[in-house]
Design a protein around this nucleic acid. Structure first.
Lengths: 184, 184
DNA sequence: AATTTCATGTAATTCGTTACATGATTCC
DNA sequence: GGAATCATGTAACGAATTACATGAAATT
């Protein structure tokens, strides 16, 4: 069963899928995958890399300080790591896992089979629709007690979720209707 | 200086501002304030209530099981608690604190002076604008390396942030231009 | 009679941050 | 010569979750 920590694993394995990288560079690229706001600390990244090595999903090799570049440790994906990545991308787990991993899984869609892409998009959509329900319920429950600002906050939240559902609908029909943008 | 944990403190104190409540009921109402998605566990709530009592911001009293209702512990805001709440609402801290507390502080706007409301809204807006910058930079940096899906994800993220900025603009001009919806 | 909802807590664990510690290289 | 960036880690701490533990009252 997928755990929370697996989100980071997934992101790191996904980035190493393209090319071997060292920790410092990985951290910068993770910002793109996890969202440009979140900057991961080394206190999280390096223990994670150690863990991935122990599991045999990546290998590390010391690269001597060549012309202009200093010594660093480059991590590379193993065959087992590729398998694990595929399993993680496809894996469905508790709603919290799927929510947190959605962005990361989407970021690696170019390497994901169409049917898995569809499953992920549809899963996301149905979770958002549940959210829509629960917001409506909570709005109904607290209408008397709520002031203008609370209502406005709920309204805005509702609208944001609805917008994302529309976005997903477009993506889903795109996946179903025509050749995907790029197929690897 | 505001810490992360203070977000929960703020939410609890804000809810108790209206009326005394017991833990179980508090937890349900917290869902409205923190967002209908997040359900807080008792493992977080009860230690928090203990902490707030120790600080003298709330008092607890055992209520005997009256007609139809069973025994429970009702928490009430103290004068010191009200002061602390006001201080927390007004407090500016690291970006992470302001980001996480924005929703909660907004939820209690009805009890917040107009100038503080404006400070909070403008603070949020300028943080989002920084985010806009950093997204643009990261898009520019990774354009060659990025595939269609990564670009689409970034595009969607950018649009969401821009939408929220527009929302904030409306709220700000509303605060500046006319009598606020409700003044307590 | 059984299940759900009400109601309160504790213990172990996990995730992640901040601060600390170190040092080379490049740019100004 | 000094600052910024590159590069890798550890230790202490903090926040919150899950699982555990308990039990009464209401609903079906």
């Amino acid at each position: 069963m997928a755990k929370r920590a697996d989100v980071l694993d997934l992101a790191v394995l996904g980035l190493l899928h393209d090319s071997p990288l060292h920790g410092y560079e990985l951290r910068k690229r993770l910002a793109t995958v996890l969202g440009p706001f979140r900057v991961l600390s080394y206190g999280t990244l390096y223990p994670c890399l150690k863990h991935l090595s122990e599991q045999g999903w990546i290998t590390s090799s010391d690269v001597a300080p060549g012309a202009g570049r200093r010594a660093r440790i480059v991590y590379e994906l193993t065959a087992a790591g590729k398998e694990h990545f595929d399993a993680l991308v496809d894996e469905s787990g508790p709603a919290s896992w799927e929510d947190e991993s959605f962005g990361v899984r989407f970021a690696f869609f170019a390497r994901t089979p169409t049917e898995v892409r569809l499953r992920i998009l549809e899963g996301r959509r149905s979770r958002l629709e549940e959210r829509l329900d629960s917001i409506s319920t909570s709005v109904a429950r607290s209408r008397e007690r709520a002031d203008q600002y609370t209502l406005e906050l709920q309204r805005h939240g509702l609208e944001s979720v609805q917008r994302e559902v529309r976005w997903l609908n477009e993506l889903i029909s795109h996946e179903r209707g025509e050749t995907p943008p790029r197929d690897t």
